[in-house]
Amino acid sequence: MHLQTDRQRSTIRPLTDGNLVAQAAALVGMSAWSCDLASEALEWTPGVFDIFGLDAGTRFERQDTVALYCEESREAMLRLRAGAIETPSAFSMEAQIRQPGGELRWMRLAARTRVENGRVVQLYGMKQDITQDRLRWEDLRRLAENDALTGLGNRARFQSEFLDLPEGSERLARIGALALFDLDDFKGINDRWGHAAGDTCIARFGQRLAETFPNAALVARIGGDEFAVALPATVRPAALEMAMRRRLGRLVTQVEWQETSIPIGFSAGLAFLTGSPEAAFAAADAALYRAKRSGRNALRVAA
């Protein structure tokens, strides 16, 4: 590698041109803001107005902008803000907001505190519009967690959102039962009409499952023709079983494929959560196989 001589080298000078700094920050969608804690007066650079969907001449107070944060983001921002003022310290987060026109946006928020005489007097920092980054991330997440054929959750999502939930967790407490479904004589469908017809039957059955159980915590395709539905813990087990039996008729129907009506049926196993997710899965799976041995369109409930 060629090294420059001392005469050729030059000192890197600090960048003090405020306009150039602002222009460079704008290239990556970054904008500055500050909040005076005594008066709660806000100061924004133009990019922050754009993120919130407000005109620079808009008359507003801080609570008006806080109201634009979506609930979960607002709670997190207020908690982090209070902690930074109390400590004092800095914080950063990603927040979702809803502009006055209704459009949802995502921003990255970074904040620091300015202290005078031992008191925090100002919060300041940067805000960056990351909406497109979030949309790309959501697309990647859907590809990773959703089954391409049905659009339902896949086996990996079933693992993370059900099987891996620890006992006693809040998320698991919201699930009352697990139902497993398996198409009857699916091999016969493939053998008679071909795999394209079989894929169509799987896709239609998955769609009907999602429509039949709209309040389910999760509907997933966990195998070739096997599905799982995590049912909410909103009613007693007996009532849940009755409601499920009433709905099962919606799943037994014909699938239209290339001017042919293909009949599809299923077997189902139901287990109520009384212990670990793995135990409920094993119980529902055993009930499913009892249903398959008993005939078409059958439901069995784990003892």
Rank of each mutant, 00 (worst) to 15 (best):
V115R: 08
I189K: 08
L80P: 00
S261E: 07
R112I: 12
A243F: 03
E256S: 14
V219P: 00
E43G: 11
L135Q: 15
A22E: 13
A56L: 05
R236S: 12
A286T: 13
T253G: 12
A284S: 05
N117R: 14
R114F: 08
S261G: 01
V115M: 10
D185Y: 05
A216F: 00
Q254W: 15
G102S: 09
A239K: 07
L42P: 05
Q132L: 09
V120F: 02
G118H: 07
N117W: 06
I12P: 07
T274N: 14
C35Q: 08
F91V: 13
I130C: 10
E40S: 12
G176Q: 09
A238D: 06
V66Y: 10
A239L: 10
R296L: 12
S294G: 11
L20M: 14
A238C: 00
F266G: 01
R245M: 09
R7V: 07
R171L: 07
G188C: 06
A156R: 14
R250N: 05
F227Y: 06
T113D: 00
A271S: 10
L163E: 08
C201A: 15
R174N: 13
D182S: 12
G224R: 04
D133Q: 11
G275Y: 09
Q4M: 15
D50I: 08
F60P: 06
D6K: 13
E61H: 10
S31N: 14
E103Y: 04
T113E: 02
M126C: 07
